[in-house]
Structures are given as C-alpha cells and as structure tokens.
Design a protein around this nucleic acid. Structure first.
Lengths: 348, 348
DNA sequence: GCCACTGATTTAAGCGCTTAAATCCGGGAC
DNA sequence: GTCCCGGATTTAAGCGCTTAAATCAGTGGC
C-alpha cells in the first residue's frame, strides 16, 4: 500500500484529534483500558490502527522515569558460554516482562565501555555484565550512578555488585573425581599459569579430589598458555614417555588444551584416547575446536548463570536503594561424559 | 566512596545550578563546546564530574527526534552464522558511530515480534532482521511506520525491504566444482525437500557445475530432513552399495547432513572419507556437530552479510523518505577446504 | 561618548507522553 | 425540582533535554 504511506510518525495528539477525544483518553486506552468506556475505547483503537500510531518510548520513559528493558554486555559472543548466559538471562527477564538488550563487546574494552555508557544513558533498569579483565572503572561509574548491576563469571575485586560465578574449585574436583571413578589412578593436571583466576581454583579442586582418594597420584604439568597449541606440546611430551611414566587420566584446565592433547596423541597413534589416557576438559565450550575424540568436559552452565544473574538483578532493581545487600551466587558445574573418558573395553 | 552516594540522578538543571550557569550552557558544553568560553566549560565540566551527571537519553532523543542506535533481531544466536552476522553488522555500525543493539529471537516467533515492537517504540534509527519463516506481518508493521529495515539471509516474498542474501546457487556450484577439480567424477547431491528455499538454489548450482563439466555424473539422493540423522541414513545406504555404484564425491546440502554421512561411513569403516568418498558441507557452521573428519564446507560469510546489511541500512537511513530504492545484495560464498575432501594419497 | 558589532550566555518554547486533579454529566434519592 | 454521587473524560503540569531567538556585555571605530 505505497499509496497511503504515513509521512510522519503520528503522535498521541494526532490519534486523539482523529478519534475526537482528548490525549489523556488515548493514554488511558493504552495503559488503563478499564478506565475507559467500551465505545470510546473502540474509537481510539480504530484511530490508532488507522494512523499506524506507535507509542514513543522515549517520551514514555521520560514521563514515567522507567524503562522496560535491561542491558547485557557480553565479553564475546563467539564463545558459546556467553551465548548460553544470554539465553539464561533472557529467560529470567522474560519471566517478569523485561526486555533484554544485548551488546557484544567482542573482547574489546572500548566497546564494553561504550555499551555501558549507552545503557547508562538509556536509563535501562539494570545491567548484566560479563566483565573483561580490569573493568573496575566502568563498573564503578555505573554503580555511582545508582544503576543496578550484576557481574557474571568474573570476580572483579573492589567491585560493589552482586556476582554470579561458576564454582571453579568444584569444576576441578568434578573432573578429577570422574577420572578416579572410572578407574584412573595416575591423574595429570594440565594447567597454564595460576594468575588467571579460574585456573587456580580448578587446580585446588583437582588436588582435593586426589587428596580424598587413596592410591591415586597427581602430576601437575605446566603450560605456557591455555590454547590448543599448548595441548599439542603436552601430547608430544606424553607420547615420548614410557607407558608407566605417564598419567592414565588428564584434567585439562580448558577445552582447548584438552583438544590439543587429544589431537596430538591421536596423531602419534602410539597412545590411545581414551584407551591409554582419558581426557577431561573444563569448559564444554561449543565453539572449542573440535577434536578427533568427543570430549568429556565439565559444563560451566552458562544458562544457569545467566538466569541467576537476571534474578539477582531483578531483586536489586526492586529493592529500595540502600537496602540492598549484594550477594554472590556460585553455580555448580555439571559434567558431560563423552568418548574421551570411556572406560577401556576389556579386549582393547 | 559510599559516603557521598548521589541519591537521585542529577539533571542538567542540577548541573547548571551547581555551576552557576544556565541549563542551555550546560547543554552547549556537552554538545557544542566551541560555543562556550574556556572558563565556563571548565566549571561545567567540574560540576558534571562532581555530581555524576549522565545525560538522559530519553529526553535527548525526545527533543531531537533521533537516536544513535540501530537494532538487530537475530533468529538464533546459537547458530554461529548469526553471530558472524552480528559481528559484521557491528563493524558497519561502528564505522559511522552507531550503536548496535541485539535481540535474540531464539527461534521464537513471538520473541522476534516483541523485539521488533521494542525497537519500533524505541525509535531506533533502523532495524536489521534475519527473519524466521513468514515474518511478513511484523515486517510490514515496521515498514508502514516508516522505519528503515534490512532483511538478512531470507527472502521474504512481498516484503518491501533491502535484502542481503547469500548466493545459494553459487554455493552449490562452488561445492560441486571443488569436487570435480579434485578429481571426483561421480557426484552425489544429498538434499532434503526442495521447498526450503536455499536447498533448491544449491541444487541448481550443483547441476550447473556438473553440466559444465564433461565426464561427470550426478546422482541426487533425497532425504526426509536436513539433519545429522538424515546423513546417517544416507551413509547406511551408501555403505551397502558396490564400490562402483556409489558416488566418489558428495555435496551435502547442510553441514549436519555432511557430518552425519561422514560419521556413518566412519562407523562402518568399509568406506573411507575422503579416500573413497569426499564430502562437502554447505554452511560451515561452527556450531554444527563436529564429526570424525574435519569437514570441507562452503562458507556462508556471515560477517560479510552483516556488514553489507548495515551499509544498506545506513544508506536507507540517510536517504530522504520516498527516494530510497530497495536493493538486494548477493554475497558470494567462499570455500573452506579441510580433510574431508583431501585428494587420496597415492599409496592409499 | 555613542553605536554597531561580536561572542558568550540566557530565555523560552517545545519534543510526546503520563497522571493527579478538576470537570462534566446523567441518574437516583429525597 | 434539587442535590449528590460516581463513572467518564479532560485539563494541565511536568519529565529532562535541545535549540532558535533574544539578551547581555565588552570592543573598537567614529
């Protein structure tokens, strides 16, 4: 219908005029229909449809001082963990009729900051942030403006916010425990440097699992980084050892490392996964490079984190300022068992 | 500094009072600093910092009738193609200083509609939409409100919008061509039903490639659906045939099917991939189930699509209403060669 | 000393919506 | 016939910002 295209966005005023009522009545039809007689409602509805009226949200939120949306700034949408968080948050928001707006920082600190500022200026009801390293400045800015905010997956020291974390100590524990329970007795923990927070926690968890169990040894195998290449290097080392001098089960601190190890061992074909060595990863990241063997991994439960975060945020949003007590929620990781830790078949 | 938390969001009025100037001067300091003397600017800046003032975007956009953001509604963030599109769009938006807000429909039509409505009410500058089947109603609503909009990856018949599509005919052609060039002579095209738009186009492309080449046969192998299971079924069929009665190269219309075929053949181990049969997928979807062999696949170039879409949108946004001519941009797919189409080694 | 002129600042009129308070109007109740 | 009442509708006062137009100094020219 290109013939009767509306030139300009009609306002409530236009609708009111068209329907022969006052602007307040139009507003009432939209917001409190029970206050308006049936006949009038009908007329106004017709006018709205006829004119193609769309309520101007800027004016609305200016007048009411509220918004119906919350913002979420994600560190990296390429990483499926964050996509899962978005899902969870969306679910949480949906439940109370809030709309979730997503900004993807794409690992760019400037962009993270831009989005925070945008949401701040847009006066969203609150913000969910999966911060990148050292986001304190941006966080404090939001806080000082009194905007509710929840941090996801990162413990920003000094930040005065509710936080949702995955229990990384538990993640390490679960991974190691799984190996022990499937009969492995020489556990290897492959870990990058400790100064990346979660690595440290996972190490602790693995140690605890080993300590709790009799007759199991633990070897810690260091790497330079946390990537696929580092896993390959470890595989190379392992393949060169005598059979009785290498672990029979490995907890890799990331999926990338785990895949690197599996790939490296697969290539030499001297050592079988899971026959000779079982491998567990620690992130269950869909986007992790897919290896030659389906990887058993600890699930970081992104959706659960997102949902918990949304709930914390809503809680803070509806608590009168000043009365809110920040909380930290720990999400317990799960375990997804796949081929890389299958119990060796008898005849193998 | 919990001691001097600001109770309420300070307004420009507050800043003006604090700095001892008029509200217009504050506005000028923010928007046209060149109009204000250095000394005044300094005072106002100080007041802004001291009070923690944040410009209220609702008021601003109400007063100016403009926004600095565009919206993007994605069918499914779990699918990496859409994530790529988001990246591309973001890049396009960044280039002109617009902010990109993302809504994830998560395959839910209602949610897609909610987001469209939200963006409409928020008066965003324009909307990018990767529509789900039959989104005509929502699209028309936006269009009739005069909101610029670009469709991605789906040709909605009857929609009066710019559109960015991947050239699916070309995708089929590229895939088949690759097989032929690596020496395969009996091509199989594994395809679900034709009524899913891209399937049809890809079929045409494969046919063209075969037609263009002498000495190559084409066999079309139908499936019920487009998933992993369907691929498994095809593998089963193939494995049961005599060696000279089966294709030596397969174009699967989706990655899922391709992975199913590879997995199924791998399991029987009677037929080798790529030794006996090379397999090409058609989406290069990172989230596709990872198979036993790294899959050669046609790249749908999500990022390029996103960027092209953003550019079309910006073009429409700055063209005076009525003068805009809609365009459709076809993105040419690329090819990512991996193990599943490696040329058989001589000794194998 | 008066004036036109320039640059800095202020005034004031909205932008489109919400909402408390005021107004209207048609029935009973008396 | 007069009052009062309650539901329906309208009036009017903002919400916080932008911006064109008006005001207000100083300056230098004469």
């Amino acid at each position: 219908m290109p013939a009767n295209v509306k030139k300009t966005n009609p306002s409530m005023q236009d609708v009111a005029r068209f329907a022969g009522v006052s602007i307040a009545t139009v507003s009432n039809v939209i917001n409190r229909p029970e206050k308006v007689s049936a006949a009038t409602t009908e007329q106004v509805r017709a006018a709205i449809a006829e004119l193609g009226f769309v309520r101007n949200d800027a004016a609305r939120s200016l007048a009411t001082g509220t918004t119906s949306s919350i913002g979420m700034v994600l560190a990296d949408l390429d990483n499926s963990l964050f996509v899962d968080m978005a899902h969870g948050a969306q679910q949480g928001a949906d439940a109370v009729g809030l709309r979730l707006l997503i900004g993807n920082a794409a690992c760019d600190m400037t962009r993270q900051d831009d989005y925070l500022r945008l949401f701040d200026e847009a006066r969203v009801g609150g913000v969910l942030l999966s911060p990148m390293e050292d986001s304190l400045a941006g966080i404090e800015r939001m806080r000082s403006h009194g905007r509710p905010m929840v941090l996801l997956n990162f413990e920003q020291s000094g930040a005065d916010c509710c936080t949702v974390l995955v229990d990384n100590e538990e993640a390490g524990y679960v991974a190691a425990r799984h190996l022990v329970e499937t009969g492995r007795t020489r556990i290897g923990f492959v870990a990058g440097r400790d100064y990346y927070q979660p690595v440290h926690a996972r190490r602790l968890g693995v140690q605890r699992a080993v300590r709790e169990t009799g007759g199991v040894e633990l070897e810690e195998i260091g790497t330079d980084g946390l990537g696929f290449e580092d896993g390959l290097a470890v595989a190379h080392d392992l393949a060169g050892r005598a059979a009785d001098r290498r672990p029979d089960g490995i907890v890799a601190v990331t999926d990338e490392i785990a895949n690197g190890i599996a790939e490296g061992l697969h290539a030499t074909s001297a050592v079988q996964v899971p026959g000779d060595i079982a491998v567990v990863g620690c992130e269950d990241n869909r986007s992790a490079r897919s290896g030659p063997v389906a990887l058993t991994a600890v699930q970081l439960e992104g959706a659960a984190m997102g949902q918990a975060a949304a709930e914390l945020l809503l809680e803070e949003m509806k608590t009168p300022a000043g009365e809110h007590r920040h909380r930290t929620v720990m999400i317990r990781p799960g375990l997804v068992v796949r081929a890389s830790t299958a119990v060796p078949a008898p005849q193998a």
